[in-house]
Write a protein that binds this DNA or RNA. Sequence first.
RNA 1: CGGCGUGUGGCCUAGCUUGGUAAGGCGCCUCGUUUGGGACGAGGAGAUCGCUGGUUCGAAUCCAGUCACGCCGACCA
Length: 478
Amino acid sequence: MTVTPEDDFAQWYQDIVQKAQLAENGPVRGTMVVRPYAWRIWELMQGFLDEMFKETGHENAYFPLLIPQSYITREADHIEGFAPELWTVTQGGGKDLEEPAVIRPTSETVIGEMMSKWIQTHRDLPLLLNQWANVMRWERRPRLFLRTSEFNWQEGHTAHVDKADAMEETLRMLDVYETFAVRDMAVPVVKGEKTPSERFPGAENTYTIEGMMRDGKALQSGTSHYLGTKFAEAFDITYQSRENQRELCHTTSWGVSTRLIGAVIMAHGDAKGLVLPPRIASHQVVFVPVMAHKAPEVADEADRLAKELKAAGVRAHVDHRDQKPGFKFNDWELKGVPLRIEIGPRDLEAGVVTIAQRLGHDDEQGNPIKDAVPTGELVAHVTDRLVAYHDFLLQRALDFREANTKQVDNWDDFVAQVKTGWASVLYDGTEETEQKIKEATSATPRCIPSDFPAEDGACFVTGAPSAFGKRVIFGRSY
RNA sequence: CGGCGUGUGGCCUAGCUUGGUAAGGCGCCUCGUUUGGGACGAGGAGAUCGCUGGUUCGAAUCCAGUCACGCCGACCA
């Protein structure tokens, strides 16, 4: 790495993405090629999320990439929000299509259409679906992982008998996202509701988890929407109730995307490169054999120990490349591997291996402290160490966020605070005020945090009575 | 989409002002020596200079257009 995050965060981010071989631009503007090292991270993320989706009763299905253009226009707010972002297919087989098809920007419409066919009675509810898919939205200013024209995600779509049930689902899935962010990505998030101006097009309520990146900006990391009966009305999603009445379903949708990889990069990375939290690290442990060309038993021992670790459920990798150890140390640090194990003749002699941790276990010069661990204790040591390392990363991120979040009650403090972090404020909740704040500082309301205490007062901008009954977090965002 | 900037082997850059047929570093290949914090030597491969057109005897260089990328803004789950 030649640029530090402090020097130039945007450049640093791009360097990591390129040098750690995570992704690059595809040949069509705004598209992204995800390289194997990053796709593995996504697979691990998918694994944890999919398990939780299933535990909460959801089933995976798959719906078409192409949606009849007319579907998109059926819900007024939805089309208004997505019209500028649509990619449209007008030809097939060299002929103009009778009706152009849009490439899904999200699938509420096509899934709503199917739901209306599948749901007859209250006994069919709730209908709990999820799909893993790619979607496309025209983006004027693409950034790898954070905002690309095509991206991969999951989108959950559910239908319920009433508002209470749908709202419970909306908040349940928001909790799932929070659990995932904290437990698997070591990224603390603020959970809360979006203000009306930031709502998903077509939603009654939008909820979000917001993570703080190491430049103090917010990244919206997952959203969950209560859609009310808007899509049910547009797609005729109805059921017959116990009372033999025709009722509209209340629907929800919720999603997270490969943007989460961007969150991990920016929430944990440092001047040496990527820092991967162990639960989603492509390799949790990498062995670097030393002097293997002269002492073949070194490589054999590394292979044997890696096998032992794999049997214990640890993702271990042996770096057999023909490079000097120093090169490999730097390379794996750049790639964010949690633990590196050096093994050479000296270690073999002593019956130990030498372990270095990517972050948080350094001497005064900032060099990693290397610990000798007896070979027989390796599996237990690594297993414990990975858990402790996760906790360390989470705490570090939490400390950073707290150090960069302040309650402010006047304009000057606000302007200063959102330059480097988040401000929690009382404001009047109007779009005019939000606009004024945005124009002056480029900060926007991130969310109304669920766990903030009730509080009322005067808007720090206009002096009018504050809205939402509590403080709202403002910050610059991606 | 607006403003600014940048496009030269895989990567980073020099050359452009003053036109004459592309240079260096890193990386890559081969061989040898090396291996506990980014090795060294020797030999080698690799670019019609983003693209299109124009001016010219001749264009990386001048002109026009266009595409892509970056930053800021607008817009945006």
